[in-house]
Design a protein around this nucleic acid. Structure first.
Lengths: 234, 234
DNA sequence: GGAATTTCGATTATCGATAATCTATATTAC
DNA sequence: GTAATATAGATTATCGATAATCGAAATTCC
């Protein structure tokens, strides 16, 4: 009996593969992607590739003009900032409505923060980004607002944050992790207003740093900072 | 010499047609749409129809499950409320960033408000909805934030508000129009903060009324209210 | 030599047909 | 009679091929 777990359409699979290739840098920003070429490469026909392209265009990961072709979008710092700002407002909205549902999910949030700290210590920035996404996603989903969830997911926070995982300064990451705890604390008090404001401010700060700062901590600095921080965390 | 202005792909044209048919009620909520049937009906092949379907799914106007089919989504009052809430937060964000760009576009906003009043007087609720959309769109686009614009457009406020144009209570409409002027006034003072808050509160009120109120003004009441309101407007 | 035009190769957009999958009905076994 | 299974019809997912369109190189004309 064959297991046959391939429960995703070809288009879906192609989409996943393309996202990974873009994240891994196999397809650089600005590079042209040709439907038939990708199709041949993956051993499928043009149709599912075209379908995957369209979904990635909707996620603003690819861009296309009729009859002119499709290429990998350059996610500029500017756009990353714009996206972050929008995300901030969405999460502020989510927080205000998620208070009740989060009451007995606070430990999940704490677990994600701990996951970030662990990953940060190991220098595994992709993992940090992943836990960070989970932290924010949990809040958004707890809002129960389906439209809000769908819009938030469409920002492709996950993909973009992994794309920029290398770029991100260590300092930003540590500060980002630190700023999660007051948020959890606000939720535990049932104060969605404050939690929301903190979430939005987090994105504003993030945007600023992304724009201005190129000063980065060395791994050694990071380790020192972590050591000083952890006692308070546990 | 043929004019040949058909500068839209078949998929695009199909999409427009489908949206109109849904708005006009030719396709009811919950109704199943079959790719090949629509294709045959419109005299095109399955591919562009499928493409149009996918875009409408992304706009949450259709819903589809793999291998099971695609149907017209029922836009419940609940979802309309959710969507309105998200829109409110987005527009609040937009307002804060649009202040400068709007400085010399205030007359455009005023024109849309006047358009709403005129249309309201004529009882043309679809036109009211259209001007209302334009009012909000102008603010969002003035923000200059491409991500924000794209997300806002994806809410398909236009389509949904036309869908609900019949449903909407006269009172809501009149109140909606009234509440536009303080917003313009705030923009004229350069106070994006207040304009933003007003925009968001507008959506909150709208949501409430949508939920609770079924009491509607009669056309006669509407006319009286308009007469009392207009002097202040001019 | 340079601007306008033509031609050609490459790529997207669309088509018609087939394969894979689902839903509901019919059939069988108990 | 009921539950499990098999069959049939309908619909989606995918394919391979063709038509429409684009961009650049080649050509013509001044």
């Amino acid at each position: 009996m064959s297991l046959k777990v391939e429960r995703a359409s070809l288009a879906e699979q192609v989409k996943e593969i393309l996202i990974n290739r873009i994240i891994e840098g196999k397809y650089k920003g600005g590079e042209r992607l040709i439907e038939l070429a990708v199709a041949k490469d993956l051993g499928v026909s043009q149709a599912p590739v075209r379908e995957a392209f369209q979904q990635l265009v909707a996620m603003r990961i690819l861009e296309s003009e009729p009859h002119k072709g499709t290429r990998v979008r350059e996610i500029t710092d500017c756009e990353m900032g714009e996206s972050t700002m929008v995300r901030g407002y969405l999460e502020e909205a989510a927080a205000r409505h998620a208070v009740h549902a989060l009451k007995d999910k606070l430990d999940d949030l704490r677990a994600e923060v701990q996951g970030m700290l662990d990953a940060l210590e190991k220098g595994n920035f992709v993992a940090v980004a992943k836990h960070n996404v989970n932290f924010h996603r949990a809040i958004v989903h707890a809002s129960g607002n389906q439209v809000l969830i769908s819009v938030w997911e469409s920002l492709a926070f996950e993909a973009k944050s992994r794309l920029c995982a290398q770029k991100a300064a260590y300092s930003v990451m540590l500060n980002g992790v630190k700023s999660c705890e007051p948020i959890i604390e606000a939720f535990s008090r049932g104060d969605g207003e404050t939690a929301g404001r903190l979430l939005r401010l987090q994105t504003e700060k993030c945007g600023d740093v992304q724009k201005t700062a190129t000063q980065r901590l060395t791994p050694a600095d990071l380790h020192k900072a972590l050591a000083a921080y952890k006692p308070a965390a546990t």
